[in-house]
Design a protein around this nucleic acid. Structure first.
Length: 422
RNA sequence: GGAGAGGUGGCAGAGUGGUCGAAUGCGCGCGCUUGGAAAGCGCGUGUAGGCGCAAGCCUACCGGGGGUUCGAAUCCCCCCCUCUCCGCCA
């Protein structure tokens, strides 16, 4: 959510932001609602002030005196009016709240103009796609692929997109997660194992609700299976005021992630490219506003280092205004090269939300300078998501004999040099 | 899941339906005192919103939501959470 004062005082900034993100939002309608809300608020507060004054006077009066009885009658009318106006005020307030939630975060000045994924800027490329995967195939075409990654039985037991990981397949998932968590720990992130269901309030605070309601799995008591650890992690400090000295707070969490992905289809859903349940380690930062862009660069570097250590070619995209998402102020995507599919696969998305999430979740710190609470900036990124990293490893490192070479950094976690499809 | 007890400011803890945004204590900040410190004394110490150039004024908030009432921290209803006991359980 945006600062209501910013909207009031600088609506053109908001209009420019909406244009840069290529969204359609009627800013004037929001402004009109805000004006109406303020007028109604003043009216209600005036009535309440009158009530309070009268109540104080009545408290000093002996009950039952004619004077008292007259006052009661008089205040009955005021009370009725106040209640009626209050109902209207609440209605307006709710509409205003909804309208405010429809306003996207302001993209940072360094975010490139553009509407489509093609207009994202390739900020850097690491490793040479041409030099890997001499024997590459799309991972789902690797002989005996289904011995380690059993989609058919997963579909039988649960449904499409819920594969079984077996033998070296399961072991490689576990090795990757362990590797990610250890490396993230070395980079300063405290490991957290959060609940993997969240309530509606938490889902709302990060923006998963209401916009993505249909994309989450929901239980009978309105808990949501987390689509990412970002949700429970960000909510950890919801409605809290932190010590400035605590900042920055760095945390990482492994969770399975659940996404319904209703309506998705086509080639990008083949194999491990898109599944309904997958494992991911998420990186989270709560930082002082003055440092958030430096922290974003570091966060991205932390995620990149994992790919470097796995010796996977990847590129970094700086997302353009139209492709970066509603809540982000700036976002980088990390894409790993899948030599078999001959395409880039997104494995991490590193974003600075500035105060957008923090305002919605009311996460603040007490400023040493002013002594007053201020909103923190929140950032997050994957570090990393398993299935596509796995896909790239399988494709890029496939040997002529059908085995998959395990990168040196992962060998201590995997326990051997090659994965075997048997 | 069943029975009971409880949720009040940073913490502890009071609060006959009417100057209660809330006593008191602790903590914290500033000042006095001191060679310095402690003790002591004095003053101050929540959050959010609206109005105002500002000083400031106003409103809301006692787990959450509704209700009764001229007036609710206080009475009624629903929900959530914590604790104790019982049941069930990896």
């Amino acid at each position: 959510m945006l600062d209501p004062k910013l909207l009031r005082e600088n609506p053109d900034l908001v209009r420019a932001a909406i244009a840069k993100k290529h969204l359609e939002v009627d800013v004037d309608a929001v402004l009109a609602l805000d004006a109406a809300w303020r007028a109604q608020l003043q009216e209600v507060e005036g009535l309440r002030a009158a009530q309070k004054t009268a109540n104080t006077a009545m408290a000093a009066l002996p009950k039952g005196t004619p004077e008292f009885i007259v006052k009661v009658a008089e205040m009955k009318a005021v009370s009725a009016q106040a209640k009626e106006r209050e109902v209207k005020l609440k209605e307006t307030e709710e509409k205003l709240q909804q309208a405010m939630l429809s306003l996207p975060n302001l993209p940072h000045a360094s975010v490139p103009e553009g509407r489509t994924p093609q207009e994202n800027i390739v900020a850097s490329t690491h490793g040479d796609p041409a030099k890997v995967g001499a024997h590459a195939k799309p991972h789902w075409e690797i002989p005996n692929f289904d011995k380690l990654f059993d989609f058919a039985r997963g579909a039988k037991v649960t449904g499409a997109g819920f594969p079984f990981f077996i033998g070296d397949g399961a072991k490689l998932v576990r090795a990757l997660l362990h590797f990610f968590l250890e490396e993230d720990g070395k980079a300063g992130y405290i490991e957290v194992s959060p609940p993997i269901f969240v309530n509606a309030a938490s889902a709302t605070a990060t923006g998963a609700l209401p916009d993505k309601e249909g994309q989450m799995y929901e239980t009978q008591d309105r808990l949501f299976a987390v689509p990412t650890a970002e949700v429970p992690l960000t909510n950890f400090f919801r409605d809290e005021i932190l010590d400035e000295a605590m900042l920055p707070v760095l945390r990482c969490a492994y969770t399975p992630c659940f996404r319904r992905e209703a309506g998705s289809y086509g080639k990008d859903v083949r194999g491990l490219n898109r599944v309904h349940q997958f494992d991911k380690v998420e990186l989270l930062k709560w930082v002082h506003p003055a440092t958030s862009y430096a922290e974003l660069d570091k966060l991205r570097d932390d995620a990149e280092r994992l790919l470097q250590k796995l010796e996977l070619p990847y590129r970094v995209l700086l997302m353009c205004g139209g492709d970066m998402g509603f809540a982000q102020a700036k976002k980088y995507d990390l894409e790993v090269w899948g030599a078999g599919q001959k395409r880039w696969l997104e494995v991490s998305s590193c974003s600075n939300f500035e105060a957008f999430q923090a305002r919605r979740a009311q996460i603040r710190f007490r400023s040493k300078e002013t002594g007053k609470p201020e909103l923190v900036h929140t950032l997050n990124g994957s570090g990393l998501a398993v299935p596509r990293v796995l896909a790239a490893l399988l494709e890029n490192n496939l040997q002529a004999d059908g085995r998959v070479k395990i990168p040196a950094a992962l060998v201590p976690y995997f326990g051997k040099d090659y994965l075997v499809f048997a």
